[in-house]
């Protein structure tokens, strides 16, 4: 049920990704301005745009049929640019992360706000996480599919 196409990488300086909550057209625009390669996968109710940056971080952007990015996930040796990735939700993420700060900084960061969820885990040299807009998920899509 999955099909994908590999698109050529374009070279520029900053790795940049599309933004949570914005239109999928920003994926294509960002890819051109990034050093990322991209793969598109189609599922029943959404498409996944997977970008691999030069730092080895893989970012997946989940776009609804109407073209809105309702979820992102990431995995790699470092974190992606969360400011770029979360867009208008970055400030909410940053504030929540500050208020949840616990001694050590080694435990996963789980933020569950109404309509906005961020989960961040891993360790030095390997980070993994996801963020999604829970009230903007297409119907019949489970958050278990965001990974």
């Amino acid at each position: 049920m999955f099909v994908f196409a590999v698109l050529a990488a374009a070279a520029c300086s900053l790795p940049a990704f599309a933004v949570l909550g914005e239109d999928v057209s920003s994926v294509q625009a960002d890819r051109v301005h990034s050093n990322a390669s991209m793969r598109v996968t189609t599922a029943q109710n959404y498409t996944i745009h997977e970008l691999r940056s030069a730092t080895g971080v893989v970012v997946r952007e989940y776009a609804s049929a109407s073209g809105k990015i309702f979820a992102v996930s990431w995995q790699g040796p470092t974190l992606p640019d969360m400011k770029q990735l979360l867009g208008s939700y970055f400030e909410e993420f940053q504030k929540a992360a500050q208020s949840q700060n616990r001694p050590g900084g080694h435990s996963p960061l789980i933020i569950q706000h109404p309509g906005f969820v961020v989960e961040l885990g891993g360790h030095m040299r390997s980070f993994v996480g996801r963020a999604y807009l829970s009230d903007q998920m297409p119907s019949e899509v489970s958050n278990q599919e965001i990974r």
């Binding site: 435990s107 996963p108 360790h123």
Partner: peptide
Amino acid sequence: CTLFVSGYT
């Protein structure tokens, strides 16, 4: 800048 999961040093 050292990234840990829920903080950096």
